[in-house]
Write a protein that binds this DNA or RNA. Structure first.
Lengths: 217, 217, 217, 217
DNA sequence: GTGTAAACGAGACGGTACGTCGTGTCTTCGT
DNA sequence: ACGAAGACACGACGTACCGTCTCGTTTACAC
């Protein structure tokens, strides 16, 4: 992540344990203090490391927190649950489970806020966090096409647009319910949400491919 | 907002002009500097006001920014565009227009991040920002029912749940596309999104009331 | 002091009680807090008076404290104790008694420090405090001349110089012992000091008027 | 002074240049602004140093000024001028020369005022300033005894009391004339003062050891 | 082994912002 | 006109973190 590929050949190598300790300390500090009260000096102390060591590896608070939170998304997986609806429910619930953690809530939204003014940071978030979620959506679609639940896409541009829409809707709704509405994303909600989403997508696809008569709007 | 209703009877009254100047200065600073570089001292200077005056009225950066950004949502309105779909598109585009402003992007997400650890702040955001958006959704539904596009709700609990779902989906998708995907919410996207949403809702309603045969999930 | 002689003829007259209350509050605050922690707002509160009232009468902390401390010197008197030595001892002990009070210690030295950069303040101190002490010295000399202990002065310039010297030595020694050495000025010390001072003055006078043989130096 | 003798073994060592720069800046600020207008932020700026550096070494304004002014007393010396009277005149004039400096006037009296409520500060002043002066008085006495001008002391308690009296009288008179009377301590005054002091002391010593007949009092 | 070179802990450094406090002025209403 | 109440502009306070630096020390690899 933060280490250049061209490794230096001489000198004392960087402690591999330090990286893990720092990221773990960062998450612990996020849980206890939240983003705004988190200080790098405190993280260094918690990790049993000097501030210098920390700055040698990360440029600042934002970058550090992105990496610390990104590790939470490593556990995202999409086991085949047999149907498109079940797969989407799984994604929603897994994503919600991560977001329910205090270190994710506080840290992720804060770096997102920062990323509105820092393109490099946005790119880092995209690579570390967003793409990992997006992969699940694409995987689910591929699987559904293999099952015959969805037709194979013909127009790649339209397919990408649809995938983006799905992604924004799924992730956005989960985030919004968790952070803004402050309501839990439980099985019932996930089921209702998935139903609406799939019916909407099915309807839109039918309208586009079949008789365009009864479209709303 | 921040002023107790029980007004003191004696002493020099607080300058009414200062409030507006401070909020305007806050928005200007958000545009120029973003949340993290914004300092209350700078805001005070821009507003031509002493720091003390600022602290006398707001408890801190978070509260100030909520009020400053909340004013942007005052302009939210829902003119009757003749159909439910058009109304929803209108809400989406208006909300997107506000979110596209740099002062909203940076400020809103940051206070949202802070609100994960501060219930009073969350409540303040809910009252100042969220409820104002929610009102539009409810208004749109009432109007659609009057037009006959939607049936009158019988079960109030179910109706509230549906409204919450709609709200989370609409607001969440717009926010996510704007901030995370960093893509514009233009007319085309709004139209596609609205179509999927309405088809989904219609399908879900039909499935609940009519023949539950071919529902997915 | 601070009030122009030409009294205003119209409007509500100034509360005469307020002056005394403010000065008393100032002394009380000096005792409790000392000069540096004393604030005019606190003095106003103690006196049951608004800050405005205070500023209408005194220009600032320095002037207020000078007046507050000067009142302590009102009690300085020189009852005739029958001999020059006894009179001087009386002056020394009275002066030391005032200086032993915490409000005088802290306040007087502080305004003296300020007066090194503020001629108006020095003049105010001279008029309010120093001249009142000096008067005692002159009074004691007059009395001693009447008793025949001292010859009548012939050269007025020399007389003034001698009086100034006495004054600097008496006041300086008492202040230094009290504030710098932090030792008490008790009867024993006053007696020893007076003895040295009078012997020195007598010797100097004899040397000047009589045979100049055995002078040291 | 402010640095513990047990030096820390690790970490970046404190800049030795900073100490001197800060003290010099403090003296310069005292000359320009006087005690009450002197701010630690300004001193730090003048010294080209951060405020933190200053606070790391001194607890506050008082301690800093004591050290800054104390350096002025480093130059106090007592060259042997051949007689006790000449030596005392030298002390008086040297002490007066230091007190005539604006940085000493303003700073010294102010910390003295503060020391009336702060024992640690008084002790610091005693160690840094007062003892250095006192040493001169004792040195002068030793020298005079070697010359035969003064008899060797027999009672050490009485000797100490006499030395204290001399010290209070010399220092007190010089301070009082300089600060309160605001008159210069020139050669003429120093000569007159010394004559009175020595005659007084000689008289008192004679009275104690010889025939106690004609004592005043 | 013996360099050599980088990473390491510790902590001081120049800065910037914080939130509070005190000063002296002002504005309002009540007396 | 004066007084109380308190808001106001200003500026200093002392603290906390920032990100950098300068030390002395440790650790791996190359010779």
């Amino acid at each position: 992540m933060h280490r250049p590929a061209s490794a230096p050949r001489t000198g004392r190598p960087r402690s591999v344990a330090a990286d893990a300790a720092i990221l773990a300390a960062t998450r612990a500090a996020l849980v206890e203090l939240g983003w705004s009260k988190l200080t790098l000096g405190d993280v260094a102390t918690r990790a049993g490391v000097a501030k210098t060591t920390l700055y040698r590896r990360w440029a600042g608070k934002n970058e550090l927190v992105v990496d610390a939170v990104a590790a939470l998304f490593d556990e995202l997986e999409l086991p085949d649950r047999g149907s498109l609806a079940a797969d989407i429910e799984g994604v929603v619930l897994q994503f919600a489970a991560i977001l329910a953690r205090p270190e994710a809530k506080s840290g992720l939204m804060a770096v997102l806020a920062e990323s509105t003014r820092d393109d490099a940071l946005r790119e880092r978030i995209r690579a570390s966090v967003v793409d990992r979620q997006k992969r699940l959506v694409l995987e689910g679609r591929t699987r559904a096409q293999a099952r015959g639940e969805l037709p194979a896409e013909e127009d790649p541009g339209s397919a990408a647009r649809t995938a983006d829409l799905i992604f924004d809707v799924v992730a956005g709704a989960v985030v919004h319910r968790t952070l803004v509405s402050a309501e839990p994303v439980d099985l019932e909600w996930a089921r209702g949400f998935t139903r609406v989403l799939l019916l909407g997508l099915a309807g839109a696809a039918a309208a586009q491919n079949g008789p365009p008569g009864e479209l709303p709007g």
